[in-house]
Design a protein around this nucleic acid. Sequence first.
DNA 1: TTGAAAGCGCTAACAC
DNA 2: GTGTTAGCGCTTTCAA
Lengths: 350, 350
Amino acid sequence: MARRRQSVTIKHVAADAGVSLQTVSRVINNEPNVRPAMKERVQASIDKLGYVPSIAAQRMSGSRSYLILAINDRERTIADWTARQGGDWVDQMLLGGMLTASEHGYRMLIELVDTHDDHVERELGAALSALHPDGVVLTPPHSENSQITGLLAERGIRFARIGSKEPGPGIAMTMDDDGAAEEATRHLLELGHTRIGFIAGSEEYSLSDWRKAGWERTMGEAGLDCDDLCVRGDFGFDSGLAAARKLLALDDRPTAIIGSSDQMTLATLEVAHEQGLEVPRDLSLISFDNTPIVRFSNPKLTAIDQPIAKTIARAVELLIDRDGDEVEQPVVVSGELVVRQSTAAPPSGT
Amino acid sequence: MARRRQSVTIKHVAADAGVSLQTVSRVINNEPNVRPAMKERVQASIDKLGYVPSIAAQRMSGSRSYLILAINDRERTIADWTARQGGDWVDQMLLGGMLTASEHGYRMLIELVDTHDDHVERELGAALSALHPDGVVLTPPHSENSQITGLLAERGIRFARIGSKEPGPGIAMTMDDDGAAEEATRHLLELGHTRIGFIAGSEEYSLSDWRKAGWERTMGEAGLDCDDLCVRGDFGFDSGLAAARKLLALDDRPTAIIGSSDQMTLATLEVAHEQGLEVPRDLSLISFDNTPIVRFSNPKLTAIDQPIAKTIARAVELLIDRDGDEVEQPVVVSGELVVRQSTAAPPSGT
DNA sequence: TTGAAAGCGCTAACAC
DNA sequence: GTGTTAGCGCTTTCAA
């Protein structure tokens, strides 16, 4: 266990094993053309000295940087962190991304970028120049920001677009928003609901309309009207309040509502309570996201889980293994409906 | 806006400005011995070409790596992420750490390390060799793991120890656990409580006993007994359940309980409800941590906020500015008592 | 199958 | 003040 003050380099290993630097390099990178005996000898020296290649040096000499950049919207992310309302998007990204990356000897670094900024390009460009990541994971709304995707494509950096279906450079991935909305709707249909309201999310996110489309289609297939049953919010709590009020003020009021985010659905729950409606007796609720908070409301919300960790894990894999191009796109990772206490049969009077 | 396929290097800038590489380097690093006119000219080229130095190259040539490593306990962190119970420790670290780091041109990278593992040293050593971070932020229980602090010291890497008071290498930092417990106790005292129970955290964390000490001292100063009023948990929900049952089974039952974590305090709330006690009418509760979930219980919990973001931000600053050594240690960043709905005067009968 | 040489982009040390 | 030289630790030629 030689432990030098300065960390051990490839030279030390080469000297110890009595081979050239090149051979050590080949062993590190699992390259062919190394005789087993040689390989073993070198590996022994590596283990003995506790040698670990310097990523900076590897990157310098034109090889990989072993870095994946996960990019999130700055404003939104900081707002979430500051509000401390229980959103765990970033944690789930880390859970899926970091762990998968590290299995492959990579690291994942979070980077915050302003979408609305005029200088997204400069901001992101600087990060790319400084870090030279081997891959980038884009989350909504960046996934569909052509300034960003364009820059990445131009620089020849592999990237995944979470929440995007469009063809084009980068690996498109979705969490099956359409199918999830269908599943939620179908669940309510099976319980006997016919007036199922829907609170859509911000138009800035394509997935908002995929969810809406899934609900609409399923309603249509069941021969049911959607007419005035959809209201648009912006994913936030306040917009949910407004949307819920609108829906619950309808003459033929919905007996169930699907909210496109936990915040909006929780807001709906609050409005329901305000109006003396009991959930799920008078009103069934299904939420999208399944962030921690849905477990703490009363009743606990039935929700569509967003498989963020799984999706990011898959993205990182595709980025690292470099077979993202061969895979059929969009890559879809489906979430599931987690049934809790906010859904039941509609009131019998209806 | 020259935009090359390959990113622009220091050479391009030097050529464009008609100066030597070194001069450009000096400008980048804000070094002296560059005439203002020269500096301006170089800066103009930098801006024009959109040049950003490659961190890998900077690191290679013996300068900084512009990287701060934030190390968390692997097992605990993954458990938290998987449980999705609303803990936001990592988010708060990122909020404080990432943002502060980026203000200084640094990045913060999260790294998960097993404390209990026999090969902490190898694991951490590998990360250090690969990344060569300029600084490391240690969180409990790593902060007091001498294998870890020893390795860091040996390698000459600056580090901060959050939740540690001991002298020794690295910057010791606390969130004033003792003072916070005092504040919580005092708040209850002022409301008129005299039987104040305390649920301590795992002994593996020194801060558990600092909190306990703060409570004990304050109780003592008020001439009050602590005798059977302290039960130890492990920060987790189940241990809180057990501790609360023990405390509430006491003959002279406490009218208030301070829990050393949100999970344990929430468990206490549940036990109270089980036993038909109303909070805060029959029992007051104060929690430690102030993670998102305390906002979603009924009643909302009064809690001592752990100023994680602030603390990590300060740690990163001290690490980057390299004046951590001159600062008085331990560096303490105080949290505050956030009064919500779980504290009131004790039942009048008492 | 192995090794030697060159160079990645940058900065330290030294000259000028 | 500014430029030159060397070299960081590694991988990519290319030669043996």
